[in-house]
Design a protein around this nucleic acid. Sequence first.
DNA 1: ACGGAAACTGAATGACTATTCATAACGCTA
DNA 2: TAGCGTTATGAATAGTCATTCAGTTTCCGT
Lengths: 197, 197
Amino acid sequence: MNTVRREEKRERIQDAAVLEIARRGYYRTTVSNIARRAGVADGTIYLYFKNKEDLLVSIFESAMRRFTEQARQIVEGDVRGAEEKLRRIVGLHLSLLGEDRDLAVIFQVEFRHTLHILERLSRSGIREYMALIARVVEQGKEEGVFRRDLDALFAAKVVFGILDEMATDWVLSRKNTRLASRADPVSDLLLSGLRAS
Amino acid sequence: MNTVRREEKRERIQDAAVLEIARRGYYRTTVSNIARRAGVADGTIYLYFKNKEDLLVSIFESAMRRFTEQARQIVEGDVRGAEEKLRRIVGLHLSLLGEDRDLAVIFQVEFRHTLHILERLSRSGIREYMALIARVVEQGKEEGVFRRDLDALFAAKVVFGILDEMATDWVLSRKNTRLASRADPVSDLLLSGLRAS
DNA sequence: ACGGAAACTGAATGACTATTCATAACGCTA
DNA sequence: TAGCGTTATGAATAGTCATTCAGTTTCCGT
């Protein structure tokens, strides 16, 4: 089968899975649910994914790739200083999740299912993402705008923790706020914590 | 049955559940697993809990009650200023989780199972805990040690987000560090972000 | 248009497990 | 210690669902 068409169908299944899993939760979503939503037979799923867990992981990896690619552009791009880069990463993180509530639900809730899956995920994508943030912190230290006593990886975890909490809070809140609207307050608070005095 | 003995057995079942669920994950843990570990018959579980989910929620509520009670003592106690109170809350949070890895696994991973459970949990305990942190921030604003432009609830979410990330990171890392050892760096960073200039 | 290969289908299979309930053991009181 | 209400037991029930695979359809090069 044409590689392009094959890839399209694969994505169609992933999209269907995001939709179903966001609404019912991973364990309550059956493979049949996903198949029906994607307009294929149950068995077809297994032509594209090894099994149900592999499908979940593939969703994570696709999404994480987008995250990381864009974050890398910011980090390696020729934008101004570290402060501005950090602001951009905060904005990126909150926009990407805020644009797609279903994906956000999966990221903030469903991916955390069981230590086993979480470990598998964290070993791959998140580590890389975290490292990108840490690079910005390092850069800020070199530029002298961030405190020199910061451990860059520790600071990256702090940044990620705040973004993660904002996203979870947004997912759980019924209100119709835009997630990205929290970018500036978050950046402001973060920067005043990191800044050299 | 003697109320005390009944309560003891209830706790024995909860403890067994914490142990099993931390190791296998909620969905992979069967009621039989928990019963065997607690030394009771499967059916006995249902004399103490409505069903499996109710058991999970009861664990959360018991633990959350301890958290909140101790946090309240700090907030309402006659300790020095808001900065010191915040330091103590950070210390409390990281010690309580750091002392019991199984419970920490359940808090950081297993409780997040499905939006449905998470919503049920967040509506109850966490809101109260968050409000306690927000009170400390308010107090700090009044004392003039924290920036006046802070939204207290927003700041509380930031605090919680950082603590939560530290805990998750610790749970996922194989290393034998003490979680509580991160209390000071976290507090330092937090306070320099919140502090009035 | 033909034929073989590649994709797809969906009913059947095989496991698994939360919950129930008839029966048994316990423990308290008189 | 006999009797009775309370508690505990664990085999049986009643579903559920991921995964497979024999059979069917679609595709495409000739």
